[in-house]
Amino acid sequence: MQEFEELKHIWQQSTPAPQPGPLPDLSKASAQTKTKLQRAQRNGAISLVITALFIAGLALWGDFHFKQWYTYAAMVLVSLICLAQAGIMFYIYRSIKQIDETAPSTAHLRQWEAYYTFRQRLIRWNGPAYFLLLNLAMGLYLLEVLERASAQFHLIFFSIYLGWMLFAYFYLGKKVLKKEKQRITGMIEDLRQLEMQLKE
């Protein structure tokens, strides 16, 4: 019959070799949910900044010879909308980064709950606003670009454009948000269960 002190003795016998092995590979990507969420926001923001710069570059040096000023204004608008959205994504990235992994589980849970509330509030207005503004700017741009195109071309173009936009907003966008929500709510649920275990 072993007593707890004997188990402690067994545990202490299991001490690994004095050398704890090589240092961990710090360049390896973390599998933690926090890092995944951060990465998604950072990569999205970087892509949008690149897109904005590309469109602004086309407006400045594209040699398009548009006759209407509003076509150039539309290109600038698209760039600004992309930059604004990138700014929001960087802000979200920073908010996730500020969640303190070194806090006790209960404090950690409170921070994730606060982030979740903020994110849900943001999703309500940010998604529709971005979609609407981007399409208004695109509409303005297409006024001159498609001016001389045939009715048949208009029909085909707008069918494809509208189809893609609706697919991107209602399917791809919602899918990404759903995945993000699952990750956060999963983590909050786990933390709540752990908090319950600690309170028992």
């Binding site: 240092l23 590979d25 710090l26 933690q32 303190d100 992994e101 070194t102």
Partner: peptide, 18 residues
């Protein structure tokens, strides 16, 4: 070993918060 790696990765990333 995976957890040890993850833990010390978090230590490295949060050292500025200590």
């Amino acid at each position: 070993e995976d957890l040890l790696q993850e833990s010390f990765l978090a230590v490295w990333n949060n050292m500025h918060l200590y």
